[in-house]
């Protein structure tokens, strides 16, 4: 890599979050140009409301991708958590929420055991667990639930309520989680170890770290965050059906990639992912405004991920 390219790389790397925010603002500007007056407090409120579940889902994904893995079961877990929360809520909302979160923890535990102890490739392990979760959920819904469960009022408020007219309630939850993640990744031993494992597992082992403990915990954290995202999403759309969050699997990975976290592991941040989730949500809003059919939206999503990933790889390069 030439020194100029290296310098560019460093600038982009240190300021990637600014580039991303600029992109976000540009997209909002585009909306304003297309439909003057569209960008108002109400619009911002809506964007934040819809970005929150994706942002939380992508938070778990970020944790796993930093370690060099990937979790393809996040969407299934989110769906299952929301469904089970809703179906258990009639016996008590707390019971419902705990049951939903438990789904995430248990699936995360199994994923973690597979990846960390049995050394199964994360892609395969989480793919298979996704199947197990969805299959089990289908069976559960047939056997135990008579009708599509409704979402309890508390969750509905959490997902789509607002404070001071414009500030979504879910934003508070998202902000707290984001703060914990951003600070935790930088300033705790556990965060350090995630980056270390993603960078070089062997080196981490030689430094005396028992990597399996870290990975296992991390997959559980990812499962828990996925469950939270599912519950929030159920509140946002005010429904908990059997395919609630499934469309969010690919966006959860896309938000991480757009946010600049290396899919090889070892670098990245949650702040990037959070902006990535916002960009995806705004992009969706732009495309909806332009009356772009869903099909074209998908094609564009795909193309954008390819371009961004290629750009990151080119600029940041792995020598």
């Amino acid at each position: 890599m030439s020194s100029r390219a290296a310098a560019t790389a460093r600038i982009v790397q240190q300021n990637s979050i600014i580039v991303l925010i600029a992109l976000l603002v540009a997209l909002a500007g585009l909306i304003e140009v297309i439909r003057p007056g569209a960008v108002n407090a109400n619009w911002v409120s809506n964007i934040l409301e819809f970005a929150a579940p994706l942002g939380i889902l992508a938070a778990g994904q970020t944790l796993v991708v930093i370690t060099g893995g990937i979790d393809l079961s996040v969407a299934n877990v989110a769906t299952a958590a929301a469904y089970i929360m809703a179906s258990q809520a009639p016996f008590g909302v707390t019971r419902g929420i705990v049951a939903g979160l438990l789904v995430g923890v248990v699936v995360g535990l199994v994923n973690g055991v597979g990846v960390a102890v049995f050394r199964v490739q994360p892609l395969i392990m989480t793919l298979a667990m996704g199947l197990v979760v969805t299959g089990t959920l289908n069976v559960y819904s047939q056997a135990a639930v008579r009708s599509v469960p409704g979402v309890p009022a508390v969750i509905h408020t959490l997902g789509s309520g607002t404070v001071l007219e414009y500030v979504p309630v879910s934003l508070f939850l998202w902000a707290v989680l984001a703060a914990v993640l951003i600070i935790g990744l930088r300033g705790t031993g556990f965060g350090r170890l995630l980056y270390a494992l993603g960078d070089n597992q062997e080196a981490t082992r030689l430094a005396g770290v028992r990597g399996w403990q870290v990975l296992l915990t991390n997959y559980m954290a990812c499962g828990l965050l996925s469950a939270v995202a599912g519950i929030v999403l159920a509140g946002t759309v005010n429904a908990a059906d059997l395919s609630l969050a499934n469309i969010l699997l690919l966006p959860s990975v896309a938000a991480v990639v757009i946010g600049g976290t290396s899919i090889f592991g070892g670098s990245g941040s949650y702040s990037g992912t959070a902006v990535g989730a916002l960009i995806l949500t705004v992009l969706n809003s732009v495309l909806t405004l332009l009356d772009v059919p869903d099909a074209v939206k998908q094609v564009l999503y795909g193309a954008i991920i390819v371009l961004l990933a290629a750009a990151y790889t080119r600029v940041l390069g792995r020598d």
Partner: peptide, 27 residues
């Protein structure tokens, strides 16, 4: 070709192109 030329990991590229092919199919 995209994987080889961009050197982006296969998982990311095929995940992204899976959107593209699915979108085209819907079109």
């Amino acid at each position: 070709a995209i994987i080889v030329l961009t050197r982006v990991p296969d998982i990311v590229i095929t995940l992204a192109t899976s959107f593209i092919w699915a979108g085209l199919a819907l079109l």
